[in-house]
Lab assay of single mutants.
Amino acid sequence: RTVKALYDYKAKRSDELSFCRGALIHNVSKEPGGWWKGDYGTRIQQYFPSNYVEDI
């Protein structure tokens, strides 16, 4: 599953992803609480806010 970032996001913790608008995040798994995990660049299975992305 791949999603596309709608907005920039700067990680606030070491287990979160930072990305820019338009970024493609791969291998996404839905987690409870509005935070999902995914791969972006060299960061593997890190958290990001689900309301910052859309399915593609």
Score class of each variant (00 low, 15 high):
Gln46Tyr: 09
Asp8Phe: 06
Tyr9Ala: 00
Ser50Asp: 05
Arg13His: 08
Leu6Asn: 08
Leu24Lys: 09
Lys12Met: 13
Gln46Glu: 03
Ile44Leu: 11
Cys20Asp: 12
Ala23Met: 05
Asn27Ile: 03
Ala23Gly: 07
Glu54Val: 08
Lys37Ser: 05
Ala11Asn: 06
Ser18Arg: 01
Ile44His: 14
Asp55Thr: 10
Tyr9Arg: 03
Ala23Thr: 12
Glu16His: 09
Phe19Leu: 02
Tyr52Thr: 14
Lys37Asp: 05
Glu16Leu: 05
Trp35Asp: 06
Arg43Pro: 01
Lys30Leu: 10
Gln46Ser: 14
Asp15His: 06
Ser14Asp: 12
Ile25Met: 01
Ala11Arg: 03
Ser29Phe: 15
Asp55His: 09
Ile25Leu: 06
Glu16Pro: 00
Tyr7Leu: 12
Cys20Val: 14
Lys30Arg: 13
Gly33Ala: 04
Thr2Tyr: 10
Leu17Asn: 06
Glu16Trp: 00
Lys10Val: 15
Glu54Asn: 09
Gln45Trp: 01
Tyr52Cys: 12
Thr2Pro: 04
Trp35Asn: 11
Tyr47Lys: 11
Asp15Lys: 05
Tyr47Ala: 10
Ser14Val: 10
Tyr47Glu: 03
Asn51Lys: 12
Arg1Ile: 11
His26Arg: 10
Ala5Pro: 00
Pro32Ile: 15
Tyr52Leu: 14
Arg1Leu: 15
Leu24Cys: 13
Asn51Ile: 06
His26Met: 12
Thr42Asp: 15
Gly22Ser: 03
Ile44Met: 14
Gly41Ser: 04
Ala11Cys: 02
Tyr40Gly: 02
Asn27Cys: 03
Tyr40Ala: 07
Leu24Val: 13
Asn27Val: 00
Tyr7Met: 12
Ala23Cys: 12
Gln46Cys: 10
Gly33Trp: 08
Ala23Gln: 04
Gln46Leu: 13
Phe19Arg: 00
Leu6Ala: 09
Lys30Asp: 09
Leu17His: 04
Glu16Met: 04
Cys20Trp: 05
Glu31Trp: 14
Arg13Cys: 09
Phe19Ser: 01
Tyr47Arg: 15
Arg1Trp: 15
Glu54Trp: 04
Arg13Trp: 02
Val28Cys: 04
Gln45Lys: 05
Asn27Glu: 10
His26Ile: 12
Gln45Val: 01
Ser50Cys: 10
Cys20Gly: 12
Tyr52Val: 13
Glu31Ile: 10
Pro32Phe: 08
Cys20Lys: 13
Ser14Ile: 14
Tyr9Ser: 01
Lys12Pro: 01
Lys37Ile: 07
Gly38Arg: 00
Asp39Ser: 02
Lys10Asp: 14
Glu54Tyr: 06
His26Gly: 05
Gly33Thr: 05
Pro32Ala: 14
Ile25Trp: 03
Tyr9Asn: 05
Arg21Phe: 09
Lys30Met: 12
Leu24Thr: 09
Ser14Met: 14
Asp55Ile: 06
Gly33Lys: 02
Leu17Met: 14
Trp36Leu: 11
Asp15Arg: 05
Asp55Gly: 07
Asn51Trp: 13
Lys4Arg: 09
Glu54Gln: 06
Thr42Lys: 09
Cys20Gln: 11
Ala11Gly: 11
Lys12Phe: 04
Thr42Ser: 14
Gln46Pro: 01
Trp36Gln: 02
Asp8Cys: 11
Cys20Ile: 09
Lys37Glu: 03
Thr2Asn: 04
Gly38Ile: 02
Lys4Gly: 02
Glu16Ser: 04
Glu16Asp: 02
Lys37Leu: 08
Glu54Ser: 07
Lys12Asp: 09
Trp35Phe: 14
Cys20Arg: 15
Thr2Glu: 08
Gly41Gln: 09
Tyr40Met: 07
Asp55Ala: 11
Gly22Tyr: 02
Leu17Thr: 02
Ala11Trp: 00
Tyr47Leu: 13
Lys12Glu: 09
Gln46Ala: 14
Gly34Ser: 11
Val53Thr: 10
Glu31Lys: 11
Arg1Tyr: 15
Thr42Phe: 10
Tyr52Glu: 00
Cys20Ala: 14
Leu17Trp: 01
Leu6Asp: 04
Cys20Ser: 14
Gly33Tyr: 07
Arg1Thr: 15
Asp8Met: 04
Arg43Gly: 13
Ile25Ala: 03
Asp8Arg: 05
Glu16Tyr: 04
Ser50Phe: 10
Tyr40Ser: 08
Arg1Cys: 05
Lys4Phe: 06
Tyr52Trp: 07
Gly38Glu: 04
Thr42Ile: 13
Lys4Ser: 05
Gln46Gly: 15
Lys37Val: 09
Lys10Gln: 13
Leu24Met: 09
Asp15Glu: 14
Arg13Leu: 04
Asp15Asn: 13
His26Val: 13
Leu24Ala: 03
Gly34Leu: 12
Phe19Val: 01
Gly22Pro: 03
Asn27Arg: 04
Pro32Val: 07
Tyr47Trp: 12
Asp55Ser: 09
Asn27Phe: 00
Trp35Ile: 04
Val53Asp: 02
Ser50His: 10
Ala5Met: 00
Gly41Asp: 15
Thr2Cys: 07
Asp8His: 09
Tyr52Ala: 12
Tyr40Asp: 03
Trp35Val: 07
Gly22His: 03
Arg13Ala: 10
Thr2Ile: 11
Lys10Arg: 13
Lys4Tyr: 14
Arg43Leu: 11
Lys37Met: 04
Glu31Ala: 11
Phe19Lys: 04
Asp15Thr: 15
Pro32His: 07
Ser50Leu: 03
Glu54Met: 07
His26Thr: 14
